[in-house]
């Protein structure tokens, strides 16, 4: 085992202490407050009154938009995490191959991550504006289209754009995690596979994926959490309009808290979201990690 001897039983905990302290003060304490607020009555302007039990949760579940928004959230998380993982994987494979200009390409791929989400969302919001957006500008002036196109004709399309932007900004994170995994694979594995007569797909299935999987696991868990909680893209591009049909859970609860002044149910919703995440991410982690250990 790759461990070192320790002198006292309590020593490891001492090492963990700063991190624990930091997180307890700045993350756990606010989480505690959220839990407390979720069972408190909160006035419209935000004054916290007493304990009211689970009324906030009942109201949250009864929210007319709750069903639509849960569905949207599922679509959002699955499509963004799923597609960005797939595309990130392909990107990593491409960036791992030897070709002219690889260093430049790698630097470019990190760009979307180096820009804050608010800015990314604003740029894309500008790009797809039908009236003066840049997509129409560039396509018209290059002669690709004959007349300006309304790129956000229906809310379904707008939601698809939002997912697209989500995927766009998530790819670099996945790509670099996978790339790191790819780089560490010993060429000997591939040579052995070639000798065995394995083609591209066989090598991918039997060598690449199994070896990259561990690094993907934690990356995916964090990704699920970040994407579920992602807020600026939807808030900037549609604000959930029309009628919460493009909202996800986090944007809905933000709108409920600060636009509709239903602060109690909004807080309850955030606890519900937390529970959902715990179950999903937890289940994912359990299954993948158990397999690894086995």
């Amino acid at each position: 085992m790759n461990t070192i001897p320790i002198r006292h039983k309590w020593e490891p905990y001492l090492w963990l202490l700063p991190s624990l302290l930091l997180m307890s003060i700045f993350v756990v304490f606010p989480i505690g407050i959220v839990f407390k607020l979720s069972v408190s009555e909160i006035s419209k302007s935000g004054v916290v009154r007493g304990f009211i039990g689970l009324k906030n949760f009942r109201d949250a579940f009864r929210d007319p938009a709750f069903g639509t928004v849960m569905l949207n959230t599922a679509v959002w998380v699955v499509s963004v995490v799923g597609l960005s993982t797939l595309l990130g994987f392909i990107t990593a494979m491409a960036l791992n191959a030897k070709f002219f200009g690889r260093k430049v390409a790698r630097s470019i791929v990190v760009f979307p991550w180096a820009t804050s989400l608010v800015i990314q969302a604003s740029v894309w919001n500008y790009i797809i504006k039908g009236e003066y957006g840049n997509l129409n500008n560039i396509l018209l002036n290059l002669g690709v289209i004959k007349s300006a196109v309304n790129w956000r004709a229906t809310y379904q399309i707008e939601f698809a754009w939002e997912c697209g932007v989500g995927i766009f900004v998530t790819i670099p994170f996945v790509a670099f995690t996978v790339l790191a995994g790819l780089q560490s694979i010993d060429d000997a594995y591939y040579e052995a596979a070639t000798v065995d007569g394995a083609g591209f797909w066989k090598k991918l299935r039997h060598v690449t994926i199994p070896l990259v999987k561990p690094s993907l696991t934690v990356c995916t868990v964090l990704n699920i959490i970040y994407v579920f909680n992602s807020f600026p893209i939807i808030y900037t591009i549609t604000k959930g309009a029309p009628a919460n049909k493009t909202d996800t859970m986090v944007t809905l609860l933000y709108m409920r808290a600060f636009y509709d002044n239903q602060k109690g149910p909004a807080t309850a919703m955030s606890v519900i979201g937390f529970a959902i995440l715990c179950v999903c991410a937890g289940a994912y982690m359990m299954t993948t990690m158990r397999k690894e250990e086995a």
């Binding site: 624990l20 997180m23 003060i25 700045f26 993350v27 756990v28 304490f29 606010p30 989480i31 505690g32 407050i33 959220v34 607020l37 868990v221 964090l222 959490i225 579920f228 909680n229 992602s230 807020f231 986090v250 609860l253 933000y254 807080t267 955030s270 979201g273 937390f274 995440l277 715990c278 991410a281 982690m285």
Partner: peptide, 21 residues
């Protein structure tokens, strides 16, 4: 588990708590 759990609230959600802290 604690570390991962600590990430599961969106900062947007924690605004009130953080601000009070």
């Amino acid at each position: 588990g604690f570390v991962i759990m600590s990430q599961m609230f969106s900062p947007v959600v924690l605004l009130v708590g953080i601000s009070r802290l």
